[in-house]
């Protein structure tokens, strides 16, 4: 099996004594769409920082497509495209200048750089703004500009650190579609996000970091199988003030026309519907209440992804 990324015993202790990573063993298969999750301060950004050379590791080994960063970091870097959490482009430059310059830093000749710049600015729908100052772009456009910049050298591994933070739902979904497409075309993607719905929708494998250690590294499907309870929200036609007492362990009233019901592992939705029918309660619509991944995440690290450490 070939790995896009493999870390062995990766550790980082900052000068202030904080142990951000404590011997992290992480492997991401080539072609994967991998979610790297964890609460704030868990060590996700440190991992990305080490990969992009902005953070110097204390110890351990990192290989990108088999290239050890200690023996040939420039080659390893040429495989990587990084979309950081914070905007880090020159706000006085235009998208055209930013993307072309980035291509130049990877040794791409001017003609190819111009072709790819147009290709990615169009794909990410910022071509119309190519001559505007980057500082004048909207938040969503700035995010897409950073994705275009990370792709201009056509990396084999794309790392996205909270790429959809602060982006409205429409743009977020179009970005998901775009990322799915480039993953289908063969680019390995590592994604960190606080939107667990995003990870659940996009990623095939998942790693959860907490306190600098990997607490879970498995496929999304296997992880979700661990769930033994799902909660559904039911909009009902009737108006209810109370529920039968025997329903207390699986149902709650949110308001007079909304119910929450828990379906445990091994239980069927039909059982719930049978009980509702017997009570002459008619269901108008039903939806999954909580993000399933979020339930697991909270169970593993004791907090939601956006919580402070």
């Amino acid at each position: 099996m070939s790995y896009a990324l493999k870390t062995t015993g990766l550790a980082k202790t900052y000068h202030n004594g904080v142990n951000a990573l404590k011997g992290l063993d992480l492997s991401v298969q080539e072609g994967d769409f991998y979610a790297l999750l964890g609460p704030n301060g868990a060590g996700k950004s440190t991992v990305i920082g080490i990969l992009s050379s902005l953070v110097l590791k204390s110890s351990g080994r990192v290989e990108v497509f088999g290239v050890d960063i200690d023996s040939d970091f420039p080659k390893a870097k040429s495989f990587l495209g990084v979309v950081p959490q914070e905007f880090n482009f020159n706000i006085f430059e235009t998208p055209l200048q930013i993307i072309r310059n980035q291509a130049g830093y990877y040794g791409i000749d001017r003609r190819t750089a111009s072709e790819r710049t147009e290709k990615y600015l169009r794909l990410l729908r910022i071509w119309d703004k190519r001559n505007d100052r980057a500082g004048h772009l909207s938040g969503g456009m700035k995010r897409r500009l950073m994705i275009a910049r990370a792709l201009v050298h056509e990396p084999r591994l794309l790392i996205l650190d909270e790429p959809t933070a602060g982006v409205d739902i429409e743009i977020r979904r179009s970005m998901w579609e775009f990322l799915r497409n480039i993953n289908s075309a063969g680019t390995t993607i590592i994604l960190t996000t606080h939107y667990l719905e995003e990870a659940e929708n996009l990623c095939r494998h998942i790693g959860i970091i907490n306190h600098g250690e990997l607490v879970e590294n498995t496929s999304m499907r296997a992880l979700l199988r661990q769930l033994n309870l799902e909660t559904y929200v039911l909009d009902i036609e009737n108006t209810l003030d109370t529920l039968p007492t025997e329903w207390a362990d699986f149902a709650r009233l949110v308001d007079t026309s909304t119910l929450e019901v828990d379906v445990r592992s091994g239980q069927h939705l039909n059982d719930i519907y049978d009980a509702l029918s017997k009570a002459s309660i008619r269901v108008r619509s039903m939806r999954n209440k909580a993000n399933r991944l979020e339930q697991l995440f909270v169970g593993m690290v004791g907090k939601t992804p956006g919580d402070k450490p």
Binding site: S52, L54, N88, Q102, Y106
Partner: peptide, 13 residues
């Protein structure tokens, strides 16, 4: 402005 990171993450020696 952090735009120096554009250069530092690249393979430019």
């Amino acid at each position: 402005g952090k735009s120096i990171e554009e250069l530092l993450v690249s393979p430019t020696p």
